[in-house]
Write a protein that binds this DNA or RNA. Structure first.
Length: 270
DNA sequence: CTCTTAACCTGGACGC
DNA sequence: TGCGTCCAGGTTAAGA
């Protein structure tokens, strides 16, 4: 389920438990995830200290001296900190065992997540061509406007393209377009600068709000029960086909846009 | 270069 | 209850 807010919440949730901790071992129970889990992490990481945990796009980076362990949660992944004697379940694919009796455990039923290795001083190829962070200083409406000139694809597909901006998943794409009043099927290259400024504001606002929710409803990442870090945001249009628009009452429409389920208000979004 | 499509893998919901 | 079908919030490589 992770979109950017969930990944950010996971990052904040695990950081206090793993930063400064030394890695004892890395246990890979299932190597075939989205990509094969590289074997070098099991030999390189033991005895290394996790200096920092950070997020880039939807990747979590656990920084150590020889390099960074990259974790992507895919569609169904979650990370939690557990006592090292908690027995693994069916979909607990990777453990990073720490020196304090805890471990960081990757759980991922659909196996779309990934665990990768990025040697120090290098950039993993999957991170090399990413666009700006939506909550960072390099992202604004002018960036969207400039990048979209001449593009004919739908604006929804455009903002979900992480060469354009990272971290805007299917849910928040629909939500942000609703907030900005832009129809998701409009051609990206035919939207004005002013409206892209509104859209950039809407993307930032929607993501920030979800992260705040995540923070306040954040469950303890070191507890073994319950789902860590996921939270129900009050979505205005996503998943609400046929229900009244919160603004005007018109029925919310839905359709697949580029194979992804999309929701919008036909009256409020043009 | 731009855009679309298929594919990775598993589980849950739903209809018969 | 059992089985088939469809769907899922991500992302990439390949092909048009």
């Amino acid at each position: 389920m992770p979109e950017l807010p969930e990944v950010e919440t996971t990052c904040r949730g695990i950081a206090p438990h793993v930063e400064g901790r030394r890695i004892r071992t890395v246990l890979v129970r299932r190597r075939q995830l989205r990509w094969p889990v590289p074997r070098e992490i099991e030999s390189i990481l033991p005895d290394e200290t996790i200096a920092d945990v950070r997020r880039r796009a939807k990747y979590l980076l656990l920084e150590t001296a020889p390099g960074a362990l990259l974790v992507h949660l895919g569609m169904s992944g979650s990370l939690r900190v557990l006592d090292e004697d908690v027995p693994p379940g069916k979909h607990d694919h990777v453990d990073v065992v720490l020196d304090d009796g805890h471990l960081l455990r990757l759980h991922d039923p659909r196996c779309f997540g990934s665990v990768l290795w990025q040697p120090a001083g290098t950039t993993h190829r999957l991170l090399a061509d990413l666009g700006p962070e939506p909550l960072g200083g390099d992202f604004d409406g002018d960036h969207l406007w400039r990048t979209s000139r001449g593009r004919k694809r739908t604006v929804k597909a455009f903002i979900m393209d992480h060469h354009v901006v990272v971290g805007v998943g299917n849910i928040y794409a629909s939500e942000a377009l609703f907030v900005a009043g832009i129809h998701p099927k409009r051609a990206a290259g035919r939207i004005s600068r002013g409206r892209y400024r509104e859209l950039a504001d809407a993307i930032r606002h929607t993501l920030r709000q979800a992260i705040e929710r995540g923070g306040t409803s954040l469950r303890d990442f070191s507890q073994p029960d319950g789902q860590p870090g996921y939270f129900a945001i009050d979505l205005k249009v996503y998943g609400r086909a046929g229900q009244p628009c919160p603004t005007c009452g018109h029925a919310i429409a839905s359709a697949h846009i580029g194979q992804r389920n999309s929701f919008w208000c036909p009256r409020c979004q043009r």
